[in-house]
């Protein structure tokens, strides 16, 4: 497997056989604090890549930069060959690179179904003037609704379809956010801590859904703390620490990498990698 993903050795910033996202010299400073300083990284297409690292490693900031929610001080990155530096977030999403948020952003005072419909692209009724004439968007709306209903069934939210999103549990909101992101028909799905604050049973179903995305041909890049999850599901792991990529490789090999152990555990070398909360470091 690994030999098919990377070209050459699995070192930080190594080239991939078929990258979907390539970032170069992406740097973001907050005052004197360098939050992200990524020299080179490539995300392999059609696979599940985990971005891991201790708290404050710059994972979420890197996510924000790549998706246009924050602007870097310098740097370039391309998605499927298209330059993305300076492209606003909504255009990034339209290109097929969709993200979710660490703190779930379900739209509480609109229904679950409306949340889903909002994810659809190219609905002519979203233009102010065409919105006034229902026949111009009714057919599109029916198609969107059918697709949304299908996704809701898959994510076991179909019974909640007409409820306000506010009535969902925390885990269900995570599912809704993921399902809604899929409504945009993305090529690259970026999940920021999809498993945070979700009970173990739901975590399993979330993992299944993430595998499902891969089986449908989508590329997944997700941020996670828990190494056990990462090992189970990902094809490739990228480790960040203090804003930099410190290691890359297939999950089992990355975890043996001394740089990762250092970054993650500091002095607590012998702790279980899966219990990062206690072990996370000094």
């Amino acid at each position: 497997m690994p030999s098919q993903i990377a070209i050459g050795a699995a070192v930080p910033g190594c080239a991939k056989v078929d990258p979907i996202l390539i970032a170069d010299n992406v740097r973001r400073q907050f005052g004197g604090n360098v939050a992200v300083d990524v020299e080179h990284v490539e995300i392999p297409r059609g696979l599940i890549t985990a971005l891991i690292g201790p708290n404050g490693a710059g994972k979420t900031t890197f996510f924000n930069l790549l998706t246009g929610f924050d602007q870097p001080n310098s740097g370039d990155w391309t998605f499927d060959g298209v330059k993305l530096a300076g492209v606003p977030a909504f255009k990034v999403a339209r290109m097929g690179m969709v993200r979710t948020f660490q703190l779930t952003k379900s739209l509480n005072m609109i229904t679950v179904m409306e949340n889903m419909r909002l994810g659809a692209q190219k609905q002519p009724g979203e233009s102010l003037l065409r919105a006034l004439i229902k026949p111009l968007w009714k057919r599109n709306e029916d198609a969107i609704t059918a697709r949304a209903a299908e996704l809701l069934t898959r994510f076991k939210l179909d019974a909640k379809s007409d409820d306000f999103a506010a009535s969902l549990s925390g885990g269900q909101r995570k599912l809704l956010e993921m399902a809604r992101a899929l409504m945009t028909q993305p090529r690259l799905v970026m999940l920021d801590e999809p498993m945070a604050g979700v009970n173990p049973a739901l975590t399993q179903s979330l993992l299944e859904h993430i595998r499902g995305l891969k089986n449908e041909g989508m590329t997944v890049l997700f941020v996670e703390h828990d190494m056990h999850m990462v090992r189970n599901i990902s094809d490739w792991v990228i480790v960040m620490a203090e804003g930099k990529i410190v290691a890359e490789g297939p999950p089992n090999e990355v975890m043996k990498n001394p740089a990762v152990i250092d970054a993650y555990l500091g002095a607590h070398h012998d702790s279980d990698l899966g219990t990062e909360k206690q072990a996370k470091g000094n």
Binding site: F101, M109, R117, L128, A131
Partner: peptide, 27 residues
């Protein structure tokens, strides 16, 4: 009419959380 249309849906989404709506490709 407007608030019952897809345009109104986007508007209400912005009221709830504009970053979420932005992440779904709306200007």
């Amino acid at each position: 009419i407007l608030i019952r249309s897809p345009w109104g849906r986007v508007i209400k989404g912005i009221r709830e959380d504009e970053d979420a709506v932005r992440s779904l490709g709306k200007n």
